[in-house]
Design a protein around this nucleic acid. Structure first.
Lengths: 147, 147
DNA sequence: AAAATAAAAGACAAATTAGTCTTTTATTAC
DNA sequence: GTAATAAAAGACTAATTTGTCTTTTATTTT
């Protein structure tokens, strides 16, 4: 459903939301190590996120990637819009060209409910709120320090 | 989540379940036309399904693919096992190497419910029952004759 | 100013998935 | 037996996704 690029992007943004600030930046190497994802690959993804205003960056010594309060007003759907080509919430699970309440595929109902729940999670709260929730509930964006 | 191959496979099996019999076979060309999927691609998929006993086939004139009552005792999960490499129900939506009730990612709960519902739909009834349900509820495996 | 650091940019390479085409084999009809 | 038909088998191409590597540019520190 999600590409690796999107998965890495979401986890990286949540990592920065929880750990970074304009005074505490993280290089692509650190992020790659923290999330256990390929360094050069995540670097390119981070560049896109910077370009679209979802995260911030600074060059040179002491530079790296970080999030500002302004960045944190974006939501996860904004991340997917930047990384993913089409609209993943629009695709039929069984591959029908169109699939809706009038023309449902055999699993449309089940998939629809799932998509709605995801849309709420990803679209109805900003990254700040999402990140707070992650911290509060103790859910994981990496297995480092756990396994 | 599903590869095109799996999507085509599920729709093809449901098509044969509803329309075929040992006396009424369908060539890969007919199936490709009915479902609007690439002919040679679906042909290779159908071969795999035959090999694994999910559908049947006959060569030569009057030959083609079809399902027997025995075939219809398989379920959709069996199709996925043949076509898909790993277990799609085992993968974390955000890409964590492991993700379970003890080590959940931020969307594990939502995704888990979806997977459970899908598993029931795909695993707890055989193709015959699934196909009957599709016919009864009027859900679609193709848009031919609809749009 | 020079050296060091780290992102930005973009060219490559590898792997996977998707899709096509040709040859072979089995079956049926004549 | 010959011709026609259609699946089986497998080689091949194309597209997409994933991942790597090198060069350039901006920033900071000394």
């Amino acid at each position: 459903m999600l590409s690796n690029a999107s998965k890495y992007a979401i986890r990286a943004v949540l990592f920065l939301a929880e750990n970074s600030s304009s005074k505490n930046k993280f290089g692509s190497k650190q992020i790659s190590a923290a999330l256990d994802v390929p360094q050069h690959f995540i670097a390119k993804i981070l560049q896109k996120l910077v370009k679209s205003g979802i995260i911030s960056s600074g060059k040179g010594p002491g530079g790296g990637f970080y999030t500002t309060p302004e960045n944190l007003k974006k939501n996860v759907l904004d991340i997917l819009k930047v990384i993913e080509k089409g609209d993943i919430f629009d695709e039929c699970f069984l591959g029908l060209p169109v699939c809706g309440d009038e023309n449902p595929c055999p699993v449309h109902d089940i998939v629809s409910k799932f998509k709605d729940a995801l849309l709420v999670k990803f679209g109805n709260q900003d990254i700040k709120s999402f990140s707070d929730e992650v911290k509060r509930e103790g859910t994981l964006i990496t297995l480092k320090n756990v396994l």
